[in-house]
């Protein structure tokens, strides 16, 4: 039982963080807060991938004589790419928020809908 909890604990925390980020994205009306929520979601996905790549008693995948067990390098590569892409998309999102602020003079979603009569 304890083994199972330790074996799956990382995944459960990741899922909790993921859902926290998801909640902020769908429930918050502030656009900057939504992007912060998206970042929380994103980082939790990174932790999920890196958790899967870990080998017990393994070490960082840098080749060294006398070491036999390395963690899996493939998730590390994928997540390196994902981190950089994530920052790029965050930058685009925040730039959109700045433009919305200029056009509507607010970054609250409900006030934007009020101004547009779109909801």
């Amino acid at each position: 039982m304890i083994d199972e909890i330790i074996g799956l604990y990382n995944y459960w925390v990741v899922i909790f963080l993921m859902m926290t980020g998801f909640y902020v994205v769908i429930a918050s009306t502030n656009l900057v807060k939504k992007i912060i929520g998206l970042n929380i979601f994103q980082t939790s996905v990174f932790i999920l991938y890196i958790t899967m790549g870990k080998v017990a008693d393994g070490t960082a995948p840098i080749l060294e004589e006398g070491i036999t067990s390395y963690s899996n390098p493939l998730p590390h590569v994928l997540i390196l790419t994902a981190i950089v892409v994530g920052v790029a998309t965050t930058a685009v999102g925040l730039a959109l928020v700045v433009r919305i602020k200029e056009a509507y003079d607010t970054i609250e979603e409900d006030e934007i809908h009020d101004q547009d009569d779109s909801l």
Binding site: K54, A60, L80, I83, V84, V87, T90, V97, V98
Partner: peptide, 30 residues
């Protein structure tokens, strides 16, 4: 979790650049 390359990318890009971007957005908005 042995992902040292990911760690320093996250520390510099995730903790550094993202925060700067978000702060500059806040200075232009509310």
């Amino acid at each position: 979790l042995d992902a040292v390359d990911v760690a320093f990318t996250e520390a510099s890009v995730g903790a550094g650049i993202s925060t700067i971007l978000a702060l500059s957005t806040l200075s232009l908005t509310a």
